[in-house]
Nucleic acid binder design. Sequence first.
DNA 1: ATGCATGAGCT
DNA 2: GCTCATGCATA
Length: 310
Amino acid sequence: MMAMNAKQPFAVHPALSEPKFSSLHPGSEAMRRVCLPAPQLQGNIFGGFDETLLARAEALAAVEAASHGKSHPFKPDATYHTMSSVPCSSAAALAHPSLHPALEGDLLEHLSPALSALGAAEPGVAPHHLGAMGPLQQAMGMVHAACPAGEVESDPRELEAFAERFKQRRIKLGVTQADVGAALASLKIPGVGSLSQSTICRFESLTLSHNNMIALRPVLQAWLEEAEAAQREKSAKPELFSGAERKRKRTSIAAPEKRSLEAYFALQPRPSSEKIAAIAEKLDLKKNVVRVWFCNQRQKQKRMKYSAVH
DNA sequence: ATGCATGAGCT
DNA sequence: GCTCATGCATA
């Protein structure tokens, strides 16, 4: 496939970074760590009472399971792990483990008071200088160059409004999210290829990182304008490209395991390799699956934290 | 709409 | 091995 993850050659436009993101520099990750609530405490806890904590996390998971067990009816689904033969119990994947926010929050707070503090301690998602930003960098550059710097805002409120307007106008054009993603390539913006339906969807629902939103906006705005112009002259033609025969299988983590993972995450969002291995063994999951789960969970938490503050 | 995965670049 | 952007597969 093409190099879709070229490093970002430049940072977010100055006007785009507000106070929250002023920490926008290559070393922001290090800084974020410094801001973590009582890091050494977490480290000691997890490092010294491994088994105890693992047990507590599991107990927590068990309590939660019992609390709304009936809300988690097992589905006679045979989890398909074509590529990642995760030996889930035959009674695997549940519909959705939506934990009760109240109950969960309560329990977790007792187990990890530092967790709640974290939310307040880290207001912004501190978008660094962005590493894997994608080919859209160049597009951003172009758009910015062609736009009066004054009108390019990064105000979260503005972004939210744009996303909503975008969706509305997109629907008005009768174009699907997938169509938009594919059509992006025909914009011929240097360095900008197509995007998936997932990404367009996430953009519209604001479930991308702030930086990602900022980066994509100019591109999507450009597409929108072109699409509307094209429609005016009656020559809109979305283009889809035939897919391939690639088959990737998705691991499905059963609800009980997921609950445990969430409990572990509350205790330690960044478990060491050893901890991950231990957790993986206890839950009978592949270590890499657990590692990726934690990575994804962290990404999700960041987004949630950000939207919660804005 | 969202869960799990991949890969680039960085440390 | 992490973060981040992004995507395939699937509910």
